[in-house]
Amino acid sequence: MEGLSALPRLLSTFKSGERGVVNALASHGLTPKLVEMGVFTGKEVEVLFRAPFGGPIAIDVEGYILSLREDEAGLVLVDQKTN
């Protein structure tokens, strides 16, 4: 069964293939932009792939792909979905 893990984690720590629901966003100059691009509380996200050497992360945001740097992903707190 699908469920949410107990503790939310930063999106930057998610591995490829891991999914979750956005729990909260840290306050930062970039946060409004993240929200405008569709990353807001309640949104489902899945890490699709990560660039090597700690490079950017590509996530699926309910139907489209967003790429963001590790520190940018560090602004997003996600409840991991387990199944």
């Binding site: 963001l68 740097r69 940018e72």
Partner: peptide, 11 residues
């Protein structure tokens, strides 16, 4: 403006 990457990857 702080530099950022945040971009859409088009299909």
């Amino acid at each position: 403006e702080p530099g950022f990457l945040l971009m859409e990857m088009p299909a």
